[in-house]
Structure formats: C-alpha cells, structure tokens
Design a protein around this nucleic acid. Structure first.
Length: 934
RNA sequence: GGGCGAUUAGCUCAGUUGGUUAGAGCGCCUCGCUUACACCGAGGAGGUCGGGGGUUCGAGCCCCUCAUCGCCCACCA
C-alpha cells in the first residue's frame, strides 16, 4: 500500500537535486561511452523530411541500447507489457495509437531516469490465425484436413515467422522504444511452460474441469467458443405456431392439442417435451399429459416450469434440450432426454430421420412444408430477434451440448476466494486503477456476472491441453509430456483440444517476465506499472489477466500480485464517416502508409490528440496534415535558433541573473516553467493528449509567434541574452515534446546539444525530463508581456481595419499607466513586429494634431495615426465598441453589487472582477472622449 | 430490459476540483514589407455549449427530465 507513495517521494527527492546531480542520478549512460550520435549535419534542410531522419534516428537509439532497462534495485522500475497484436497480418491504426500512447509513457518515464522496460510481443491468435491459414489453403483448393494437423501447424509457423518480423518492423517505424531482445510470442517455449503450469495448478485446485454443458458451437470453425466470442445480429424471421396433439389412451391422437410457437422448427425433431408455466390456468389440466410430436410421432410430456413466460407466444414452449440453452436447463430439471440432431457442421444427422443430410435451413423449409401438408402448422407471424454468430466468421452458431474444458471462476480456491471475487476486489480496493474511471463499472459488472469460462477449442493451432488419456481410461494432467501412463504403464494419447488464445495472453504480465521461473525480470518488474488497451478487449484480456495473474502470483500477497497498477482504456479509430475499420468494408488504413506520407511523429501526435481518453476518434487527413505542419514548424524554429547561435556554445540562462534579462526573456522563461509544471501534472494524470497540446501551443503560439519575433530586434543588435534563452527554451521544449514526437525532437536535439554549454546526455531519449523548479516565476513579466501582446494585437487590428498599406510605418501613441514600463521596454520589438513607430506617453498626454484610430487595452490607449479619418465610420465603430464595453461593465457591476456574491465568492475572483471593471470603466471613458472629439 | 457515452464555431475535437467577455486545428473572407518556416505570417467573420426544468451569488461543467446518435451487458420459445 505504501508503494505508490514511496515512488512519488523518490521522484520528488530526485528532482529537488541540482540539475547536474539529477542527471548523474538519472542516466546510467555515460556520454563518452555512447558517443555514437547521429552524424552531425552541417545544415538542416529548410523543410523537415521525416523519411531521411526516422530510420537513422531509430538506428542510433538501437546502437545506444537505450531500450534496455538497467536493473537497479535502488530504483523503482517502470514496466509496461505490449498488448500482443495477432500474427494474422499487419498492424492497423489502432496498433499505431497504442504505440503512440505506450511509447509516450515509456519515454516520459525513461527520461525521468527510471529503469524502463517495454516488453513487445505477438499473439498466436488461435482461431483467427487458423482461419487465415485456412483461407490461404482454400485458394490452393486445399483444406486443413488434406494437410493433416502436423503439416498444417508447420505451415502456420511459416506464416508466423514472416509476420512476426513484419510486425516488429512496423512498431519500429513508428518509433516504439520497446526492448526487442525480450520480444515474446505466445507460443514460445517458456510461455508453453507457463500455460501448462497454470492449467495443471488450476486443475489440481478443482477449478479446471471437463464437463458436458451447453456451448456455443461454430459449424464453420468447428469449435466451441466462449460467451465473449459470440456476436449477436438482429434477424427478421417468423414465429411459427405448431399444433402438438394430445395423446389419449393407447397412444391415439385426440382432437385437442397444445399450440407452441417456435423460431426454429428444424429442431422439432429433437423435441423431448413441451413446457408451460405452472401458474398458467390455460394449461392446468394438461400438465403431466402426453403430446404427440408431429411428423416424428414421438410421445413427449407436458411439463410445468417457471422459466416459461405465459405472456409470450402461446405460453407453451417446445423443449429441445439438445439445441437450446434454456431448454437444456428445463430438460435437466424435468429429466427429459437429450437428442442432438445435428453434426459438427450443423447438418441434420440420423436423429432427424427423413431430414438427415440437410442443412438447418433446408430442414426448416422441409419440415414447415410437411407440417403444413399434414395440418399441424396453425399460422405464422413475422418476428424479429437476434441470433448468435461467430465473432470470427459470422456463421450462425449452434447451441449444442458438448464435453469441454471449463475454468470455474466462482469457486473459492485454496487462497480462500474465487478468481472472480479476487479480480473484482483488486479494482474495488484500489490495487488496480482503471482510467478513465467510468470503465470500472463495466469491469465490475462483468466480474459479478461472470460464468464458467469454456477454455477448450477444437482447433489445431494453439496450446494443446496438457492432458493425456491412456487406453485404460486413466487421465494424466501434468506440465511435462509423460512417456506412459503412470498408473498402468499404458500408452497415452494427448487431449487434442487447444486452449482459448486468451488463456495464454491472460498470463502475459507475469509469463512475459519469466514466470514460472523465478527470474530477475519477474522479481524486479512485477507487478507491471501501466497497461493499455482498447476498451473493446476489456473482458477478453484485461479481465483475464487479472483473474489469472492474481492467482498465479498469489504468493506475492494482495498488493503485489496484481498484473499491473493502472490500466488505460483507449477508444477505436474509425474511418472519416465514423464506421469501424474492417477488412470487409475495405476502409482499413495502414499506419505505415500514413507515417510515410506525414511522418511517424505527425501520425503519433494526430492519433494521440484525436480524442479524449477512452473515446473513439475519426480518422482525418486534416489532422495529420496539421500535425505534420507542426513538426515542420518545430524544425524551422530549431533552424532559426541554430542559425543565430552559429558555431559557438551558449550558456544556459541562470536564474540568479533573472533581473538582468529583458521582460520578454523573463516572460518566456517563466512561461516555460509553468508549461513544464502543467505537463508534469497532466502526464501524472494520464492526460497525454492535453500534455502534448500544451507543449505544442506553447512552442507555436508563444515561443514562435511572440518570443522569437521580439528577440529578432535584439539579436540583430548583437544582444547575447536572447541566444541563451532561445537555446534553453528550445532544449526544454524538445525534451517536453520528445515522448510524443520522438524522431524530430531527437534529430533537432542532436543538432542543438553541442551548442549548449552544459553537461548534455548522449541522446534526447535518455536526457532528463524538465522539472519545474519555479526558479523563473515572474508574475510581473507575464502580466507585462501579455499586455504588450494585446497592445500589438490592437495595433495590427487597427492597421487592417483602416486598410493601412503593409509597407507603411504609421506613428503609434500609447497613452499608458501601469504598463508604461513594459511598453517602453518592448517598443523596438513592437515597431519591428507590428511595423509601426511607437511612442509611449503618459495617460493624460496630448496627442500631436492629426487623425487617429483608437483602441483601448486595459488602461492603455492605443492611438494609430491615420492619413485621414472617415468621421462617421469611426464614430460607428467606436459606438459599437462602447456599447460592448458598457454591457460588460454592467454585468460586472451587477455581479459586484450582489451582496451574496461578495460574501461567498473567493477574494481573488472578486479582486479580478473589480480590476476588470475599473479597466473597463476607463476604457469607456476613453471611448466617450474619442466619440465626443469626432 | 439494464447500463454507459456522446450532443460545444461549417467540419474534427479540447475544455478534471462551477468563477470575470467559451478555445484549437482545418475550412471560409481580407491582407502579406520582412531570408527560420507559404507545411508560413497578420487580421477577421463564425457558437443562446442538443431542448426544458432545477441547485447555486455564479452552470458548458452539478441534479432531474426529454430528444437524437453510438456502444456495452442480459434476455428473446
């Protein structure tokens, strides 16, 4: 319980060290050892070309071995396991988003000096991959049965080898700083051992068992599925009403009958009863009597069961325990026989008598025809309901009783609780944090209602279940392959079924780190820190990792057996119309195509900021272009700075000299610190998108738009101070941005770092992340510069409005009070950037004769000299402005006159409002005066 | 049937403890002297924050309700 706190403390402690100290603490990489930085570029090209930069930068990181953590017992590590993409094909945009999120977190933590491990992996994806290979075979006119299991599996491995490397390559192109030396495939030998041990332990606990139950059967994939792998599709069909005649003495049909409603007449052949509600008076006298199953001629009983709703249909339901989950239950309660009338492929079998060999739909048509002919079909009604389909191939599923392997998630195990209870508690008690929090509800509700998990699959591709049967019906369950039956010495045959893919991926956090072996990685990195995935696999994966992780790692105790401390759920990337991207729709976008067009950094920034956490986003070229433009802007900012710095090295500004810096220097340095603090708190709160936007807005909207423009004048005069500031602000800006845009920032930082007279890391990826020390706080400079900026905006606004030619440099008089100093100090910059000739006057000074356009900014009056003025137009303009100002003042006065407001609102809000009111009032006075003189 | 989310400028989206006149990008209109950047710069137009009600001195934000869209879970003879 003290873990998270101590981690924070440790960080705070580190950051309170001096810069030089903290660098030594943070970075194990000795700059001299790793001086293999990218080849120094003589000059940066005028536009950022991602293609020429990304590969070289990624290689440089690889050569520096920066993706591998150094295990240091003194430090709290940061670890994140990659959700292993299926080896079925290439990565899609969603994987790109995951890389953007994970890599941002990983780089941020790495830059704080923590030992950071990102474990990459790929999933064998049992049913999905088998389907892909089967489709491949189909093109050659083959089936997997033609090949046989061994050849089929070997062929699948060939596919896996090809796609694993391709997938890794894609991650690398996107900049993923994962430790590739630890890459895990879910069928690797050590994962096989982990899977087998988990299975055997749970079997020995009695939690894994083999049982005959109703399951979801896919007739195309020919396997059982778990409840989660069932999709439901609305279907328009009919409700058919069929007469089941009563049977009299001696088996003779009577004229009386029971009318039943069914959507699946084809299952009639397997009916073994008819059920009614015990309270239903209509059928009171029929309960216990026998009916004659039409066409088939079998006698079946009428039973009373609470599960029957009297209001539905006729209130009487045919009971088909072999083909319906509810009927299975009813059948069990009333001891009705179970008839299964379909085979593995959903064709009618011999139990279906004359309909044997037909598909279910053929049989339905034939049976309806026969019922009609023989007068049993009463009528039909249109009916809409949903049918379960295979989430992989969309084939309609058949509920069928079948022997399968199950994991009992609700039965208490030797640890005293059930798997599901433990998994729910971990979240309820805050040992696992879900972000965004609203997903907690989904998770908990699912855990509360979870039923036993069908873990066996009738597939060839996957973890074969570690169970062996001998000829004398002995069963052997163990982690290693037995040579012969331990009980009778007989020869053994391994269970042919494989495990649900999610059984193995559910072990990822501990198995990827080496479990069941007691490895250094497992000891050091487990529990992992953050986990990240799309909300669509919350139950499939997140829930299973918690169920299985808590169990396998239970020796660690409640606090440290969790697979991860925090799990982030992100949304899906849809196409521009908001449709889900699927191969069948043909709207899938390849992240590498996007990255090659706009750059990997642009891709990452665009998808990261595309939507709030957990919300879906629409793919948009415009957003990509905007992100690319920002990368280019950054590039040119650096080009400018480097050009001004020239060959030499520049000292960082030192805050002891703060007062020797100009107001704009102090402003941008103070702002940098605020941004640094904001970014820090946002990242701690997993507000990645907000953090990235904050840095972007700062660099573009403040550094580029104002600081650089203002600095140009002094730079041209040979003032050295702006160089110090530029270099420092750019350096920190690149650091802050690096988690989000790693390539361009690294490339620029490599070009910049040798120009800073300071102890710089070998690479940005391992440079320390800025931490706000509040050394440059300067409220006066911030207020002053904000005012100066507003004044410049006013000047430009008037210029444009009065249509002054761009080449003209009109005189501007600023009648100022509080901000006179700031305006005076920045006068030359204002002249340059707003192309005017400024004079700062006292508030009540006379203006030289002539015409002016006026605007009021707080207590400063801006007067732009005009060649001549159209009095009526000017009066109208000022009148409008006056009306707005008066309305504003009116609102403020009303608010401030309100006694309850004055007594309840915080002082700073009242003070701020009063200040605005007095400024607005003086603005009104100025406007009235102007109008009067016109 | 139960639950969750969304609804803010023409489009895509920010807006986390309720606080002075609600933001960005793209698009649109006008202009562009100036070698960091036209993947740019300057200025501008454009929003009763889905409707209604409530709480509060004060609501885009909290509560109730309705509407539309989307999703999840359960059941569907």
């Amino acid at each position: 319980m003290t873990e998270p706190v101590s981690r924070v403390n440790r960080l705070l402690l580190h950051f309170s060290q001096t810069v030089a100290n903290s660098r030594r603490l943070f970075h194990p990489f000795n700059p001299e050892d790793t001086a293999m930085a990218a080849p120094a570029r003589k000059q940066l090209p005028p536009a950022y070309e991602p293609a020429t930069v990304e590969g070289a930068v990624y290689d440089m990181w690889g050569r520096g071995d920066y993706f591998k953590p150094r295990i240091d017992p003194e430090q709290e590590p940061y670890c994140i396991i990659m959700p292993p993409p299926n080896v079925t094909g290439e990565l899609h945009l969603g994987h790109g988003l995951e890389d953007a999120i994970t890599d941002a977190l990983v780089r941020w933590h790495r830059m704080q000096g923590e030992p950071v491990l990102w474990v990459p992996g790929e999933d064998h994806a049992g049913i999905a991959t088998q389907n892909v290979i089967e489709r491949e075979l189909e093109k050659e006119g083959l089936t997997r049965q033609d090949l046989g299991r061994d050849v089929f599996v070997e062929r699948t491995w060939m596919w896996v080898r090809k796609y694993r490397s391709r997938i890794a390559d894609q991650h690398k192109k996107l900049g993923a700083s994962a430790d590739w030396s630890r890459d895990v495939f879910t069928l690797d030998d050590h994962i096989v051992r982990a899977v087998r041990k988990t299975f055997v332990d749970l079997y020995n606990e009695g939690l894994i068992y083999r049982g005959l139950r109703m399951i979801n059967w896919c007739p195309r994939c020919e396997t059982a599925l778990s409840d989660l792998e069932v999709d439901y599709e609305e279907q328009d069909t009919k409700l058919w009403f069929v007469r089941y005649p009563m049977v009299g003495e001696g088996g003779m049909p009577l004229p009386d009958y029971v009318l039943v409603a069914t959507t699946r007449p084809e299952t009639m052949v397997a009916d073994t009863g008819v059920a009614v509600n015990p309270e239903d008076e209509r059928y009171e006298d029929k309960i216990g009597r026998m009916l004659l199953l039409p066409i088939i001629g079998r006698e079946i009983p009428v039973v009373a069961d609470d599960a029957v709703k009297p209001e539905f249909g006729t209130g009487a339901v045919k009971v088909t325990p072999g083909h319906d989950p509810n009927d299975w239950e009813i059948g069990q309660r009333h001891d009705l026989p179970v008839i299964v009338a379909m085979d593995r492929q959903a064709r009618m079998n011999d139990e279906a008598g004359p309909y044997a060999g037909m598909t279910d739909l053929e049989a339905r048509a034939a049976i309806l025809r026969d019922l009609e002919d023989e007068g049993f079909l009463d009528h039909e009604e249109p009916y809409r309901h949903s049918v379960g389909v295979c989430s992989r191939c969309k084939t309609v599923l058949q509920p069928i009783p079948s022997e399968q392997w199950w994991l009992d998630v609700n039965k208490p195990h030797s640890g005293g609780v059930s798997l599901s209870k433990a998994a729910a508690d971990a979240v309820l008690q805050g040992r696992i944090t879900i972000v965004p929090q609203r997903f907690e509800k989904d998770y908990l509700r699912w855990m509360d209602n979870i039923r036993d998990w069908c873990i066996s699959r009738q597939l060839w591709w996957g973890h074969q279940i570690p169970v062996w049967y001998c000829e004398n019906r002995h069963t052997v369950v163990q982690t290693t392959d037995p040579a012969s039956c331990p009980e009778c010495g007989g020869s053994l045959r391994q269970e042919e079924d494989v495990l649900d893919t999610w059984f193995s991926s559910g072990l990822a956090p501990h198995a990827d780190l080496g479990w069941p072996d007691d490895t250094e990685d497992l000891r050091y990195f487990y529990p992992t820190s953050d986990m990240q995935m799309g909300y669509d696999i919350m139950f499939f994966w997140c829930a299973r990792m918690v169920l299985l992780g808590l169990y396998n790692m239970r020796d660690r105790g409640p606090e440290n057996s969790v697979p991860f401390r925090t799990v982030l759920f992100h949304g899906l990337i849809r196409d521009a119309e908001g449709q889900k991207m699927t191969k069948s729709r043909g709207n899938v976008v390849d992240p590498l195509e996007v990255a090659s067009k706009y750059g990997a950094d642009a891709f990452r920034l665009a998808v990261l900021t595309g939507a709030g956490m957990g919300a879906d986003q629409k793919y948009s070229d415009e957003r990509l272009a905007a992100a690319r433009n920002f990368a280019n802007k950054l590039w040119n900012t650096a080009r400018f700075v480097l050009m001004k710095v020239g060959e030499g090295r520049v000292r960082r500004p030192h805050h002891a000299d703060q007062q020797s810096f100009a107001i704009e220097d102090r402003w941008i340095l103070a702002r940098l610190e605020q941004v640094t603090a904001d970014v820090d708190s946002m990242l701690r709160a997993y507000q990645l998108a907000e953090a990235a936007r904050t840095v972007e807005d700062f660099l573009w909207g403040e550094v580029c738009d104002w600081y650089i423009e203002f600095a140009k004048v002094r730079l041209n005069e040979g003032d050295e101070r702006p160089k110090q500031v530029l270099v420092h602000v750019l350096d920190h800006g690149l650091r802050l941005l690096h988690p989000f845009m790693p390539f361009v920032t690294e490339e620029l930082w490599q070009a910049l770092k040798d120009h800073i007279d300071d102890d710089m890391a070998a690479a940005l990826i391992v440079a320390w992340f800025p931490k706000s020390g509040a050394n440059w706080a300067d409220a006066g400079a911030i207020a002053g510069m904000e005012h100066v900026i507003e004044v410049n905006r006013a000047i430009r606004n008037l210029r444009t409005e009065k249509k002054l030619p761009a080449g003209e440099r009109p005189a501007v008089y600023l009648r100022a009070a509080d901000y006179a100093g700031a305006l005076e100090e920045t006068g030359a910059a204002t002249n340059f950037t707003s192309r005017v000739s400024v004079s700062v006057l006292s508030a009540n000074a006379e203006l030289p004769p002539g015409d002016y356009a006026f605007q009021r900014v707080a207590d400063t009056e801006v007067a732009v000299a005009l060649p001549q003025v159209d009095a009526s137009a000017e009066r109208a303009r000022l009148g409008k402005e006056l009306a707005e100002a008066e309305a504003h003042a009116g609102r403020l006065e009303a608010q401030l006159a309100n006694e309850t407001f004055r007594s309840k609102a915080p002082a700073n809000v009242i003070a701020g409002m009063e200040n605005t009111l007095s400024e607005t009032k003086s603005r009104i006075a100025g406007l009235r005066e102007r109008i009067a003189t016109l």
